[in-house]
Design a protein around this nucleic acid. Structure first.
Lengths: 196, 196
DNA sequence: ATTTTCTAACTAACTAGTTGGTTGGATTTT
DNA sequence: AAAATCCAACCAACTAGTTAGTTAGAAAAT
């Protein structure tokens, strides 16, 4: 039951694959490059993960779980959730890049962040916050979540605007986080009626 | 001075390239496939556009111009601008896909929608609306524009949520557009003080 | 001794980009 | 007007290198 050597090999492959898939996408990633970076023979890669897409799937699941575990959802405080997401997307941009590529390359049918079981919980929490008047009830929970996500990832690798980097001046981060919090706060405010 | 035959060839190449680049990205696109789809010999493609990246650049510029021409910017009515963008992104999703891929594949240094000269005009219009109290002054014009863009493209090919399609039920489009307009309206409202 | 983990070498198909030459219509020459 | 010349547009076939995926067997662990 000691940690088998193959587990370390697997791990090294996943790390190298994360880097390569995040940098180049599925079509652009190179199996040889991944194997070389991991210091693992290519045949091992195929033994563990079946094929290139299987490897991508493993990488994707790994990081999706990490983000869900790391960023707690607070339906009663959406601005805070948005800011947490902003920070996570900057510190570890891999998942956003992987997800964006997966979507563009069509390896998922429709939505991918929105289809996991963790999303159901979030939607229910939003609905509850709406009943309590803490989030506007005139926007569907699905759209609330989608918009918060989009706003939080405005400056991420998925966004079309300038991408934020960890080494940006602290003032820039603060400015964006305040803008984000204020915008999210105003967008879903529950105690007033607005017409579009 | 009659329209030269080569113009039609060029056009067919650009059309085919748009489809292929939008569908598969730069690395995923295939020069042979594009030439075949256009009914044009591959050597012509290289004669006209230099190389694969040159072709991508031509395709990208073509669609970027089309969108800037088609979607007028109204700083005094950001919700309306957002809804117009939502509609444009659904009717012709090519540009969003092309831009997203360009950003992911790193063919642009930092920002790409944000670096054109058309953006300067928009930023100035936002600043003016802020001075008039029609847009909140506590968010930098750059961030206002970035957030509006991100919100409008929430359900586009670039977003991580479910992608909207032209043949979605009209009710779904209406629901999303209302949600978008309300959220944008609340996010940048100028006549009240909100703390993040 | 036997199962598991690893590896070098291989293949068949595919890739972006090039070459050398052909076509058909317009311009110039006779 | 007929023949010679010109030229942009066109194309089949090729090159040189890369690609995902496989195989048969060595090394190591149990």
């Amino acid at each position: 039951m000691s940690p088998r050597k193959s587990d370390a090999t697997r791990r090294r492959l996943l790390d190298a694959a994360t880097t390569d898939f995040a940098a180049h996408g599925i079509a652009g990633a190179r199996v040889d490059r991944i194997a070389a970076a991991a210091g693992v023979n290519k045949a091992q890669l195929y033994a563990y993960f079946g094929d290139k897409l299987g490897l991508f799937g493993a990488v994707f699941r790994l990081h999706a779980d990490a983000v869900v575990d790391a960023v707690p959802f607070t339906a009663d405080d959406l601005p805070r959730y948005a800011v947490r997401l902003y920070e996570a997307a900057i510190e570890r941009p891999e998942l956003v890049r992987l997800a964006t590529w997966a979507k563009l390359e069509g390896v998922v049918t429709d939505n991918l962040v929105t289809e996991s079981s963790a999303v159901t919980v979030k939607l229910q929490a939003i609905a509850e916050a709406q009943r309590g008047g803490r989030v506007t009830a005139s926007i569907d929970p699905q759209d609330v979540l989608a918009l918060v996500l989009a706003m939080a990832l405005t400056w991420s690798a998925a966004g079309l605007s300038a991408t934020a980097a960890p080494d940006d001046p602290p003032k820039a981060h603060t400015r964006r986080k305040q803008a984000l919090a204020q915008a999210v706060s105003g967008a879903f405010r529950g105690d007033q009626s607005l017409n579009g």
